[in-house]
Nucleic acid binder design. Structure first.
Lengths: 336, 336
DNA sequence: CTGTTAGCGCATTCAC
DNA sequence: GTGAATGCGCTAACAG
């Protein structure tokens, strides 16, 4: 069987308390004793059992991340930021991938009710008041990333400003008929960013004295193929939009496929703007609204670590900057 | 404080043993007793402590995954397959992202030495004999995915066949000067697939009576930008290759950028073949060698679960099929 | 400074 | 069937 703290204690001729002390860097140990214990630990190749440690400490020493759709590049980027910082800490990282509302609810409930984590990061998914109440009751620190709730700490961007930024860019190029492709505004997941960006889009239109045409707004499942379909619909309208703002880069790529399908050149016949600035955006030469994805993950963990240290921290809302990145998919509209 | 098994026992007027029995589906409980206990559990909203459970069971109830470069689409796909199956099991999934050889070694050692997992999946990273010995000694079941070691269970593809498939396709189209862009053949990570695919590439050339020209093979860090550079070098050769086979789709996209940079049309002036068939391959119309990425993850977990159940399982090597997917980046070479 | 002891919450023998 | 006792490996409080 594995070597335990007792084996070390016996072999070193000390008590388990002392071994524990050197293990945890307690200064109340005579240097020579410490050396002896350390030597025995090395000799026996002893590794403290994290599980026993957890039970005794009454901490799980793990951080959970609940995120939808692992495979989306934007989520992966955030996860990367998270993993990088967690790896440097003493915590384990356990991940929960959510692809259905049922699974989301199950995760939201069981992860904290079962006391499986010391802290939780929730990406993109919007918790209900009920969820928040349960978490508070379980005293589990939670940080929201790319989603929000008034009672919870969060790291976000200004989605309204993002939608506004993209749309104004198109307007300044001379576009008057601008489409918007988004995720479902009302669906089981209750994502909020689509709605906020729509708001920014509408606001930019209004500022330019342009009407909001509901038929220029399409919503559907996230994904390139679905976006392609929506763009098809949009581009068959008469008059058709001369520019399309997509809720994400992935969807923007779908729009570009649709344009190709219909023999429209980008940007000569159709301008396209995405959101996120994932790696493929650069490849595709996509004009987009950049948000610091990995940074949101890092900031989230930093916040969480601090919060676990001091649960009384006043609710923080860190907002990260966004930025328009102009590449090759936007240009003035074609002459009518 | 959280409610424990003792609270439930007291409230239900039974012993903790009985509560434990109903919790674990032990049949030796009178139905009415079971009902009563269940009712109290519900009433008290009791959740067994997974940590105490682990300590008592002497199992961590967690599965670890060690993988390099989380953000690579191919890795993400595999992870997705893994997560999906683990979520259905009683195990937690903890992930270790490796971006340096040092970190790899640290993970390889500490994860099993520290008894942090009941089973381990290693993706892409090649373990040394030393690693394997340590793992065997710790009695930790390990499954290799997309990498191999004679003593370990693994799920792989035939990389030699893959390289052969891609190259033969180009040869059949009439190409005679075919480049190959790969990861470093000799580097700290000791990835083996590049070497195997090179072998298949060389074999296909030989079968067609074509010489292997070392200057047509470039190696470098993985990544689109690096591949772009390598392709630049290749395409400035005289005579330049009329086709390039890239070790991965990501790198193939870099090759396509290089072609664009140099004013070469794909596939008219240059044919490109990738590997993996990640989602972007379809977008880019990339001809590629498809491997069932998510499936490798699923198969890996299946194997691991079985292995944890019966450690004496004879070493398994499951090989998944690959397939050439012809799209729009390959065509006959230009007339000289 | 250091050894001893009492939990942490659950599973698992044993007796009854 | 069921309850009481023991141990999983470690930390922390308490004596010395």
């Amino acid at each position: 069987m594995a070597v335990t703290i007792y084996d070390v204690a016996k072999q070193a001729g000390v008590g388990v308390g002392t071994v524990s002390r050197v293990l945890n860097g307690n200064p109340n140990v005579r240097p020579e004793t410490r050396q002896r214990v350390l030597a025995v630990i090395e000799e026996l190749n002893y590794h403290p059992s994290p599980i026993a440690r957890r039970l005794s400490l009454r901490k799980t020493l793990t951080i959970g991340v609940i995120a939808p759709f692992f495979t989306r590049p934007s989520i992966v980027e955030r996860l990367r930021g998270i993993e990088a910082l967690v790896a440097e800490s003493d915590y384990d990282l356990v991940v929960y991938n959510v692809e259905t509302p049922e699974r989301r609810d199950a995760c939201f409930r069981s992860v904290v009710a079962g006391h499986r984590v010391d802290g939780l990061i929730v990406i993109h998914l919007a918790p209900t008041d009920d969820d928040v109440r349960r978490w508070a009751q379980a005293q589990t620190p939670v940080i929201l990333v790319d989603t929000r709730h008034p009672a919870l700490h969060r790291v976000v961007i200004d989605d309204v400003a993002g939608g506004h930024l993209a749309t104004r860019h198109l307007i300044e190029l001379g576009h008057r008929r601008i489409g918007y492709i988004s995720d479902w505004l009302d669906e089981p997941f209750h994502f909020t960013s689509s709605r906020d960006r729509l708001l920014g889009y509408q606001r930019a239109l209004a500022e330019a004295g342009l009407p909001f045409r509901p038929e220029y707004h399409r919503q559907g499942d996230h994904g390139r193929e679905q976006a392609r379909q929506m763009a098809h619909d949009l581009l068959r309208l008469a008059p058709r939009p001369t520019a399309i703002f997509a809720h994400s880069d992935t969807q923007a790529l779908g729009v570009m496929q649709a344009a190709a399908d219909l023999g429209l050149r980008v940007p000569e016949d159709l301008s396209v703007v995405g959101f996120d600035d994932i790696e493929m955006a650069e490849y595709a030469g996509l004009t987009t609204v950049r948000q610091p994805l990995a940074e949101t993950g890092r900031k989230g963990i930093e916040l969480l670590l601090r919060l676990m240290d001091d649960p009384s921290l006043p609710t923080a809302c860190v907002e990260l900057p966004i930025e328009l990145v102009v590449r090759r998919t936007t240009a003035p509209p074609p002459n009518p």
